[in-house]
């Protein structure tokens, strides 16, 4: 078990600032998700923690020790790659045993550990196969087993589910979380998929342009975005952001409902001219344009399919958001500001 810290870590590739001053610390045994769009620096940060890249500046600390100058093998970490990076010329058994062999674990003990690790992921029947004979899901488990077998202090996972199809991915997510809870090893998980992030993380660090924009538990990051980037990145569809005189006002589509459906008060009401309706089965998405004082600005509302109210494109309707769910952002910096009356 260990705590991983990044202290003002920077990584520049020539002019490109891939990671531009990140301060971040995991908690003991935590499942921390690094979430961000591609190119935001999350994978680079992970690779610096693993020791595969050297930081341009700053310190990486694992278990209280500055590890900048340690090679990957001395950091007591294990990593699972997006491609799984299984050794194609080795059987599953030898793949899983490889880290042990590299550590000089005696042969007899190696076998026990491989079997233990393989059984954790239910792949003991695959041990004699070569990676090319496995399905995607099986490969992913082998990669996890190979990471687990040496019982590292930290797991580093780089989008390990992105190569699986949607159905498999849900099941794998579930398994992964259960497994992490069971062994309680500090885990850093990189993804660009907010559903994975929300579902798996104890905390989420949202990254953009080489910086951490917000760090917090999933619900907090979702409900109280620190800035317009986080607000717009999370949620599907993302938060509506409309520009007022001095501020940007944000509200989630699921809070933006026909006024008559709201029960609680106080409400802020908008006149919403509906332009298009999308029926997604479980939900209905309503696209439209606001009238004064936000005239001309687009917004989206999300109605559960349990609401059967008839709404026609081209018509105007009164819509409302509970006041507490309106978020305010500074127009220039994009950061959250205090609520104010509209």
């Amino acid at each position: 078990m260990a705590i991983v810290e990044a202290r003002n870590v920077k990584k520049y590739f020539g002019e490109v600032k891939a990671v531009d001053g990140v301060d971040l610390a995991t908690r003991e045994g935590e499942f921390l998700v690094l979430l961000g769009p591609s190119g935001c620096g999350k994978t680079t940060l992970l690779r610096m923690i693993a020791g595969l890249e050297k930081p341009t500046a700053g310190e990486i600390v694992i278990g209280g020790q500055v590890v900048n100058d340690l090679p990957p093998r001395a950091r007591r970490i294990a990593m699972v790659f997006q491609s799984y990076a299984l050794y194609p010329h080795m059987t599953v058994f030898r793949n899983i045993a490889f880290p042990l062999k590299a550590q000089g674990v005696p042969k007899a003990m190696r076998k026990d550990k491989v079997l233990w690790s393989a059984s954790m992921f239910g792949i003991t029947h695959l041990l004699q196969r070569k990676p090319r004979e496995l399905s995607g899901g099986e490969r992913q488990r082998v990669a996890l087993a190979r990471a687990l077998v040496r019982e590292p202090d930290v797991f580093l996972l780089d989008e390990p589910l992105s190569n699986l199809d949607a159905k498999l991915r849900n099941a794998a997510r579930d398994e992964l979380q259960q497994f992490q809870r069971r062994i309680g090893t500090t885990t850093i998980y990189v993804t660009h998929d907010q559903i994975e992030a929300m579902g798996l993380g104890d905390r989420i660090a949202v990254m953009n342009a080489g910086k951490v924009r917000q760090l917090g538990p999933p619900q907090e990051v979702y409900d109280e975005p620190a800035d317009t980037f986080v607000a717009a990145f999370l949620g599907s569809p993302p938060m509506n952001l409309v520009e007022g005189d001095a501020v940007i006002v944000g509200f989630r589509p699921e809070q933006f409902l026909p006024a008559e459906l709201h029960t609680a008060a106080p409400l802020v009401t908008f006149t919403f001219r509906l332009t298009r309706v999308e029926n997604l089965g479980a939900d209905r998405l309503l696209y439209g344009v606001l009238e004064a004082p936000f005239s001309g600005q687009r917004a989206i509302a999300k109605l559960p399919s349990t609401v059967t109210l008839s709404l026609q494109p081209g018509e105007k309707y009164p819509f409302a958001v509970p006041q507490q769910h309106l978020k305010f952002f500074d127009r220039t910096s994009g950061l959250r500001t205090a609520p104010r009356p509209l």
Binding site: A50, P71, M79, F81, Q103
Partner: peptide
């Protein structure tokens, strides 16, 4: 050889000769 394979070997603890 995919770079990931080399990275994986590095993380898995392989030294130069291994």
């Amino acid at each position: 050889i995919p770079k990931d394979i080399h990275d994986a070997a590095a993380v898995d603890g392989a030294g130069f000769w291994r």
